[in-house]
């Protein structure tokens, strides 16, 4: 009876004014409301991002907002319900070009994912973080396409400079795998920072925005790193945690710690981008100091890892 009354689109009566139209089709009906809400929020935020896409919807580095929208659904769900991220200082993110520099941890680059999600969900205007990847990432099938469609590029200096000249926000983790794969007793100790990002910041006159991520260290507690196995499997590292590889693939899921992300005030550096390493190191140390201060502040205020 009620089926006969439904129109072809599945809508049975006009919606009251002001409410979003109820989606039609079996796929939409099977999607839980929370996902539909997240989808709508992502679409709304991405529509506000200032970017230059061509008539087919791509930017010169391969960014595709349609792919980004879909891929963000699990990130936003993780952001809201698994890691329950608390972001502060997002107003410090300037419009226009910026180098977002953070501490790296957690065995898998989820901190990058969470910082990027924070920049889309909470910044005004929303910014798509352009991640800098390793040189061998484009050789991986499927992943190389995905990485470019969601805004990542290979971390060559030319790519970084071109992105900054295009007023993008580039996200870098100067500790690299040194930070990501460190063991649990080195947590929150900032490892050596690569100096390249500072030279590019000076050359392009881009503000450096320090970001402190607290929580990533505890998501995967690494008690050992078996390099021989890593080399055998052609991976950068092979961490051993209480859950991995003991519990198999399920053990790779990070623990539901609470993330605290704090964006610091943008720091502008001038000088000679070709200066000696010592001069650049002094500037990098200022950024390291800003990050470690924020980390200490967040940790002292944190009462519990999970809540």
């Amino acid at each position: 009876m009620s089926r006969a009354r439904k129109t072809r689109g599945g809508r049975s009566r006009a919606q009251p004014a002001g409410r979003p139209p109820k989606p039609s089709g079996w796929r939409a009906r099977l999607t839980p409301a929370v996902i539909r809400r997240v989808e709508a929020e992502i679409a709304d935020r991405l529509a506000k991002v200032p970017n230059r896409l061509n008539e087919y919807g791509y930017d010169p580095w391969g960014l595709d907002l349609e792919v980004l929208k879909r891929s963000m659904i699990p990130s936003v769900l993780a952001y809201r319900y698994w890691f329950r991220v608390k972001t502060t200082g997002i107003e410090n993110l300037p419009a226009g070009r910026a180098l977002v520099v953070g501490n790296h941890a957690g065995q898998v680059a989820i901190d990058g994912m969470m910082v990027g999600t924070a920049m889309i969900l909470e910044a005004d205007p929303p910014r798509i973080a352009r991640g800098m990847g390793e040189y061998w990432l484009p050789t991986i099938p499927w992943f190389n396409v995905f990485m470019h469609r969601v805004g990542g590029v290979v971390g060559t200096p030319k790519n970084c400079v071109d992105l900054l000249h295009n007023e993008e926000a580039v996200m870098v983790f100067p500790e690299g795998v040194r930070g990501m794969n460190k063991l649990f007793w080195q947590r929150y100790q900032l490892q050596r920072f690569g100096l390249g990002f500072m030279r590019l910041a000076i050359e392009t006159r881009s503000p450096v925005v320090p970001v402190a991520v607290v929580g990533s260290e505890e998501q995967a507690i690494a008690i050992a790193n078996l390099m021989p196995i890593a080399r055998l499997l052609n991976m950068p590292a092979f961490p051993i945690t209480p859950t991995w590889p003991l519990l198999g693939p399920l053990g790779a899921i990070p623990m539901p710690v609470r993330y605290h992300i704090q964006f610091g005030k943008p720091m502008v550096f001038d000088g000679d981008p070709d200066d000696e390493d010592e001069a650049i190191q002094r500037k990098v140390d200022q950024v390291k100091h800003a990050i470690s201060t924020m980390i200490a502040d967040q940790r002292s205020r944190r009462k519990n890892i999970f809540f």
Partner: peptide
Amino acid sequence: LPENPYFLD
């Protein structure tokens, strides 16, 4: 090449 930047000059 995989490590080519996107704006080769």
